[in-house]
Structure formats: structure tokens, C-alpha cells
């Protein structure tokens, strides 16, 4: 369950941001995740609630936005959005798509109160 350590990182980042951006509490945390970010949304939510207790983000809402992956076929150059790391090219059927994005694990926005 590496989601636990990811949420501990999130908490540390939020505590540091509270000082640098001068806010008291976080109401909403928005994460942008790629389909290959090897995290489970339900596990993240479960860990989020318990890890944020006693922090600036206690009782905050966690919003997750899923990013679409981008890849290019090395054989025919077709561009696509694979669902798995081993999807064949939808145009020519070749394996080994060059995956350009899809493993994002980003904090994109915060909604905070002073």
C-alpha cells in the first residue's frame, strides 16, 4: 500500500505550502493522476482521510482528475491514448508504443482559507 506514503508526502507538502503561501486550512485538494501512476483511487481516499487528521488539511475534500495517456507507435507513427502499458497500436497492431505521458502524480489545485 504505497498510497499511504504518497499521502504522507502530500501532507508534508501541504504543511510547507501553508507556510509559504500563508493559509490556515485546506478545504479541497485536487490531484491529477495518469492511468499508469500505479495508484488506486479508493486506497488514496482511504489513506487521505486518516493521514490528514491533525494537519492543515483535516476534513479536506480530495478530488481526483484522471489524465489521459499519450503515446506514439514506433512502427507507423500513429498517436493514441492507450489504456494499459501493453496496448497494441490501434492503427497497425504493433506492440511497444512509446508512452509519452500517463504516469502523472500531481497536486494541481488547492482551495484554501486564511
Amino acid at each position: 500500500m504505497h498510497e499511504l506514503s504518497l499521502m504522507e508526502s502530500l501532507r508534508d507538502i501541504l504543511e510547507a505550502e501553508a507556510v509559504s503561501q500563508q493559509f490556515e486550512a485546506v478545504q479541497v485538494v485536487e490531484l491529477t493522476l495518469g492511468p499508469f501512476s500505479h495508484v488506486e483511487a479508493e486506497a488514496l481516499r482511504f489513506c487521505f482521510d486518516s493521514v490528514m487528521r491533525g494537519s492543515v488539511a483535516e476534513n479536506a475534500e480530495l478530488r481526483i482528475q484522471w489524465q489521459v495517456a499519450a503515446a506514439e507507435c514506433p512502427a507507423c507513427g500513429h498517436r493514441c491514448s492507450p489504456q494499459t502499458r501493453y496496448d497494441p497500436c490501434p492503427a497497425c497492431g504493433a506492440f511497444g508504443l512509446r508512452i509519452e505521458s500517463g504516469d502523472e502524480l500531481m497536486i494541481s489545485h488547492l482551495e484554501v482559507t486564511p
Binding site: 507538502i13 503561501q21 502524480l105 500531481m106 497536486i107 494541481s108 489545485h109 488547492l110 482559507t113
Partner: peptide, 16 residues
């Protein structure tokens, strides 16, 4: 004071 919306763009893996 109103709730503020901040754009942050911080990688969760940044510390590691």
C-alpha cells in the same frame, strides 16, 4: 475572507 483557489502543480514524488 473568501476561500482562495491556488494553482500549485507539485509532483507528489518530488521529495523522493
Amino acid at each position: 475572507t473568501e476561500q482562495r483557489r491556488l494553482q500549485v502543480e507539485i509532483n507528489l514524488m518530488a521529495q523522493n
